[in-house]
């Protein structure tokens, strides 16, 4: 509440208004009178899709100051008509989860703890290891001399919450590298 103003004192407002019992308009605070939902004060809203199950419910993501402040069902979606299940309704917490890791961690061989590692360094290390493992596991032909042209040194297991574009790039890169052991949640 702002500075005390006698006329705004609810006791006085009670007397001035019809709300003599002080149950309604006489007792509201300024903050209450100015209340607005954060969906209305957000900088922008973008349309998205729930990441949990395959029903594909529409979501609206509200963003303020670069932060996601609300995710709720998109009433425009003909699939979900604005509704969400508990997991979908928790999407904002998924994004802003207190337990979410935002820093890269590295565990060296035999180490008992994590250490922080620079993202750039980590990708370089992984690229080096990728190439080495690819060579070590390379199979040019099978036991009958038939062409295989592949590596068995690298494997991958993906979730089913990846975008088609992501899956596409992964499949493209792995196939070009000859890495065939790639699987996803569809078979788990």
């Amino acid at each position: 509440m702002a500075r005390f103003s006698f006329l705004e004192w609810p006791v006085i407002r009670q007397l001035r208004s019809s709300d003599s019992l002080g149950r309604g308009e006489a007792v509201t605070s300024q903050r209450t009178r100015e209340i607005a939902p954060r969906t209305a004060t957000a900088d922008r809203v973008v349309q998205s899709v729930c990441p949990y199950c395959a029903v594909g419910c529409g979501q609206r993501v509200f963003v303020k100051d670069g932060k996601v402040v609300q995710i709720e069902g998109d009433p425009d979606s003909p699939i979900s008509r604005g509704r969400l299940c508990p997991k979908g309704a928790a999407s904002e917490q998924l994004v802003n989860a207190p337990g979410r890791q935002t820093r890269l961690l590295y565990r060296a061989p035999r180490a008992t703890e994590w250490q922080h590692l620079d993202l750039d360094t980590a990708i370089d290390m992984i690229a080096d290891r990728f190439i080495a493992a690819r060579r070590r596991g390379w199979q040019d032909t099978d036991e009958h001399g038939r062409r295989l042209r592949r590596t068995m040194g690298i494997a991958a297991l993906g979730g089913a919450t990846l975008d088609n574009e992501e899956n596409y790039l992964i499949k493209k890169l792995f196939t070009a590298a000859g890495a065939v052991q790639i699987e996803n949640q569809a078979r788990i």
């Binding site: 004192w9 006791v11 019992l21 002080g22 149950r23 006489a26």
Partner: peptide, 8 residues
């Protein structure tokens, strides 16, 4: 507590 007078 003295913000208002509530008979109820």
């Amino acid at each position: 507590m003295l913000r208002t007078i509530k008979l109820t």
